[in-house]
Design a protein around this nucleic acid. Structure first.
Lengths: 241, 241
DNA sequence: TCGATCGAAATTGTATGCAAAACTACCGCA
DNA sequence: TGCGGTAGTTTTGCATACAATTTCGATCGA
């Protein structure tokens, strides 16, 4: 069941495991979680001392963690003015999805060619699990299964660099997903797309897998962008630039 | 001529500009340069105090810079044991090229569709410059022009995230290029491949551009891997794992 | 000679301190 | 009222100091 244990190259996906790189990764995860939970919305200034209180760490450690988050693009730094949560314009979201599509599609193509039969079987199982989650409406579980599905994809494609590269944008992807992907109607369509992707992967059909992956991410992108535009209209001013 | 000025999202490509993010990016660049220059070969332990002397910075700043280099994969950290320059196995190099091919090819495809006529013209000019460099044998200049060529590609594709993602592996790519791409015979072939790529881009032919980009990077990959194997044979032991 | 053990030196991990820059609020003045 | 300047506070940038861990070497015993 623990198919993900060997691809753990660095920071944990979310706030799993308090202690690993000991303090720094803990601090990093805490700050990341705070941003995801909406404690610090996009554009918000991040005061170091405040984050020290939040995480319990001293400023040296905190600042190292912030550097890491900065590289992944979740926060931005301005000279002598500290950090703030990155603002994501619709344009940037579009670009992120374009990149993500390229990387995930590559992973899918490679998975189709390189995954072991056991991994294929696991993939099929995870799709079943996903169907069950959506049928029962357990969103938390669904999210978890989905994450496992992608973990499997990234380990089965036999290229750790892809996952590493995605790691650097995955924060912002998750951020978006958490805030905007609550569309109920979207879930059914998404499931259908993942069925097609899975079928192509199981058949080891690289071209079909490519097509299915692109279709899936294009649809996801459009949903997110649509959500952003709706939100922009709703809100008084455009905090989003 | 300064086509790159607006895509500058973070650390400078190399050791350009001493002062920007003020100290940290300077320290980061100095350490990076030291690694590129072979002062710290692959696998070498990085002692913090030593790097402080090298860069003139204090440990706090240095450590922040190291975090940044760690995220980009150039160095690795082991708990309570500090940093060392990452070892690159042939397998990892293969994976890096696979990823790089995907990203650069995406950039090329998008460039073909989105670049302005002015950018097309600049691209043609840079190819000419490159031909001149190779004809005259000025390798330093050649490298610079090549970098400009890719900068243009990344800005013309209208997707900054691609460049950002590449930034995180580009260090290791440059590292490889510096150490192994000195094959004289390779330069001619490389030029020929870039001619084809440029022609496809100028024609705004996305499919051809894709094909040319993939061909270029596949050839580069094979050259590098070949070089690595030769080196492995030559050297007594395999420092490369 | 080899291995184990112990202790000092070196190195990393973490916390704190100081100086400079940026922000805030208040005041005087046109 | 509105504007500019200025003092004080906050916050960041950078450096140093202390604690914990690892590394290395010497000593001792089999």
């Amino acid at each position: 069941m623990k198919a993900t244990s060997d691809i753990d190259s660095g920071k944990p996906t979310h706030a799993v495991e308090q202690q690993r790189g000991s303090l720094r990764s803990h601090v990093e995860n805490t700050v990341r979680a705070a941003i995801f939970d909406g404690l610090y919305p996009a554009g918000q200034k991040l005061v170091e001392r405040e984050l020290c209180d939040l995480t319990g760490a001293s400023r040296s450690i905190l600042r190292e963690a912030l550097v890491s988050l900065e590289v992944s693009g979740l926060i931005e730094r301005e000279s002598n003015r500290g950090y703030r949560v990155s603002l994501l314009s619709a344009r940037q979201v579009y670009e992120i999805f374009e990149l993500r599509a390229s990387l995930e599609t590559l992973a899918a193509e490679l998975f189709a060619e390189r995954a072991s039969d056991a991994e294929m079987q696991q993939l099929a199982q995870l799709l079943e699990d996903l169907e069950a989650c959506i049928a029962s409406g357990d969103l938390t579980q669904m999210r978890l299964v989905k994450e496992r599905y992608y973990e499997l994809l990234f380990s089965g494609c036999r290229n750790r660099e892809i996952r590493r590269a995605l790691e650097n944008i995955i924060d912002r992807v998750h951020y978006l997903r958490g805030r905007l992907m609550s569309d109920p109607d979207r879930r059914q369509k998404s499931l259908e797309e993942m069925r097609r992707l899975t079928a192509a992967l199981l058949a080891r059909d690289r071209l079909q897998a490519r097509a299915a992956s692109i279709a899936h991410l294009t649809a996801a992108r459009d949903t997110v962008l649509e959500g952003m535009l709706r939100k922009d209209e709703t809100e008084t001013a455009g905090l989003m630039q």
